[in-house]
Nucleic acid binder design. Sequence first.
DNA 1: TAAGACGGAATGAACGTTCATTCCGCATAT
DNA 2: ATATGCGGAATGAACGTTCATTCCGTCTTA
Lengths: 191, 191
Amino acid sequence: MKSLNKRDEILKAAMEIIAERGFHGAPIAVIAEKAGVGAGTIYRYFENKDVLIIELYREVEGKLLAAIQEGYSAEKPLKERFLHLGTALLRYLIAHPLYFRYIEQYHNSPYGARLRRDKMLKQADNHDLFKELFEQGIVFQELKELPLFVHFALAFGPLIALMRDHILGFAVLDDTLIKQVIEACWDGIKR
Amino acid sequence: MKSLNKRDEILKAAMEIIAERGFHGAPIAVIAEKAGVGAGTIYRYFENKDVLIIELYREVEGKLLAAIQEGYSAEKPLKERFLHLGTALLRYLIAHPLYFRYIEQYHNSPYGARLRRDKMLKQADNHDLFKELFEQGIVFQELKELPLFVHFALAFGPLIALMRDHILGFAVLDDTLIKQVIEACWDGIKR
DNA sequence: TAAGACGGAATGAACGTTCATTCCGCATAT
DNA sequence: ATATGCGGAATGAACGTTCATTCCGTCTTA
């Protein structure tokens, strides 16, 4: 119990520092200090820095996926489902900006490369939900007849770009705007 | 003349190595070897590594902007102009994948942060062309009445996502598909 | 109950490696 | 012969990781 606390302290500290300063600006010594533990202690909980970083990514990804699936129903109309997933995604990331930043750091790093390679092989993930949605949409002729990866790009690309703007303070994303944006994404993919 | 050649060799080598392996995987020694010069020589042409990297970014950005402006006419209809810029951008980046990778590396690094801050202040850039386009579109009621940054996100987000897929080998972007994608982006922003 | 012994958790100084940068001797050209 | 350009070994800073040592809670024993 006590040890779980310490482990979580380390993860939390790593999360905050890496999200804010990137992997460059997050030496073990700094993470240890923020977590309130000795540098060596980190190696009692994680084999090495890479393992810590990968583990942290898994946790964040898990929470994100759980969040967007909440209240999702595969029975509802396509558009409604799309709006649900999109708004849930945006809302969750806005509520947890550090998660978004961490995910971005992770993707744009050597770790991200390995991740992509892995996903190439094992094609089952959050994408499942969206994949299913897009495939149905094409079959039912509600969506443009384009390759799946184009639909992903049209749907996620704008959201990621907006999140960046939001975090940098360029943009203010309130509920009204979020809804308009997801609708616009739908206009992009719908037939 | 001889010195210019050597300078260009260094820039080219840095470009290729950073684009392929990221800043992590590009120590001065490696760049020097690829460029066919001694490590110390690099410091005859660039004050330090940061200056080299920033200078390289300026050159790449300059070429990119020149490429998309070629053949652009502010007189033509809005949609036609948008299609021109979008396709020119995608085509150029596909033809120069290393440029795209370098730009991405740069943006997702401490350098990128400084860049953003600078652009916050001095709001004149490639964006000018797009900014003008979007503003006109809103005035003429051809585009959705959304904040400018949303239009940027809806237009560029998908293109960047697609470029990533393309470079990673997920996607094959031929001329037909490029056109369809830009059209889909237009559907996203048009009223 | 109190004293002592024990084991695992925690620590941070020390080590080895990696890197940007500097420096100095050599080569080339005038 | 002198000045300029060049290369790559040398340097020192920064970092991840290790490990001998300390710390602390628990169990044992009288």
